[in-house]
Design a binder for these strands. Structure first.
Length: 260
DNA sequence: AATAACCTCAACCGCCTCGGG
DNA sequence: CCCCGAGGCGGTTGAGGTTAT
């Protein structure tokens, strides 16, 4: 997964470390320590530069280095520290015994960054839904995709991109009066709170609607974003995914007036 | 089954800081 | 002060693995 080993123009070996090189470096440092990184490779019989040796030792060969298997406490601590001090990976690593700055940095970029983004989206949704007064929920496509957690279990009609006009026409034909009501919405009528729709993303050219929450009429899975069309269900999004589930929709159900 | 697209992470690069002369 | 070298740091790269089409 790393660059194949090669020699640069100065005869310095670069790229992935071999088992033999690891053994040489480890054996040398365990015997003599790392008194001078620049000189060390010569004495250890390695064709590497000092920086490369230092990095290899610090990040992978040190006996106290842990690899992978981050637990929830470590995840939480990294996210908390990153929120407080930003990309100060060495400072963050100092708080996590056995973890290196390089590994934490990679772990952040590949796992935690997405999670933080999701958490922020959810809190924004909650904030927005609590401030909304009948016009629905406004989210970017990116935000919506970031909180997608599953795919629909019922049949979704295949759809191709539609014009804003076509979309609005379809929505106007929805039968809101047949939508199921939850216990807390027994007095709800379509006229009271019509959903808010059209949003046109000029930058991408995609037409999409503002999402609205609907109980799944077919199999009663709750918290699904969809609408009825031609006797089936379609996602309100006409791009490359069909229907959306949301975690944390309970709050929106309680606060948003645009439920079907 | 083949190919493309995306993900992962070890390693490199370039810049910064610090200490010694 | 200034210069230089070593260590340290954060951003980026890119090959291999995995998943989607």
């Amino acid at each position: 997964m790393v660059r194949a080993p090669f020699f640069d123009k100065n005869g310095v070996r670069k790229g992935a470390w071999s088992k033999e090189e690891d053994d040489k470096l480890k054996a040398y440092i365990e015997k003599y320590g790392h008194w001078n990184w620049r000189e060390l490779p010569k004495f250890a019989g390695l064709s590497r530069c000092g920086k490369s040796c230092r990095l290899r030792w610090m990040n992978y060969l040190r006996p106290d280095v842990k690899h992978g298997n981050y637990n929830k406490e470590e995840d939480d601590l990294i996210m908390q520290l990153h929120e407080q001090i930003g990309n100060k990976w060495s400072a963050i690593a100092a708080k996590l015994p056995g973890r290196t700055d390089n590994e934490i940095k990679n772990y952040w970029h590949t796992h935690l960054k997405k999670r933080v983004k999701q958490n922020k989206s959810k809190s924004n949704m909650r904030e927005q839904s609590s401030q909304t007064s009948g016009t629905g929920i406004s989210m970017s496509i990116e935000e919506v995709e970031s909180v997608r957690v599953d795919t629909p279990s019922h049949t979704i009609l295949e759809s191709s991109p539609l014009s804003p006009e076509a979309y609005c026409t379809m929505f106007s034909q929805l039968r809101f009066d047949s939508a199921p009501k939850t216990a807390s919405e027994t007095n709800w009528t379509a006229e009271d709170n019509p959903p808010s729709f059209e949003t046109y993303d000029d930058s991408s050219g995609d037409f999409w609607t503002e999402p609205f929450v609907a109980d799944n009429i077919v199999n009663h899975d709750p918290y699904k974003f969809c609408f009825e069309h031609d006797g089936g269900f379609m996602s309100p999004y006409v791009s490359d995914f069909d229907c959306l589930f949301y975690e944390g929709m309970q709050e929106l159900r309680m606060n948003s007036p645009v439920m079907l």
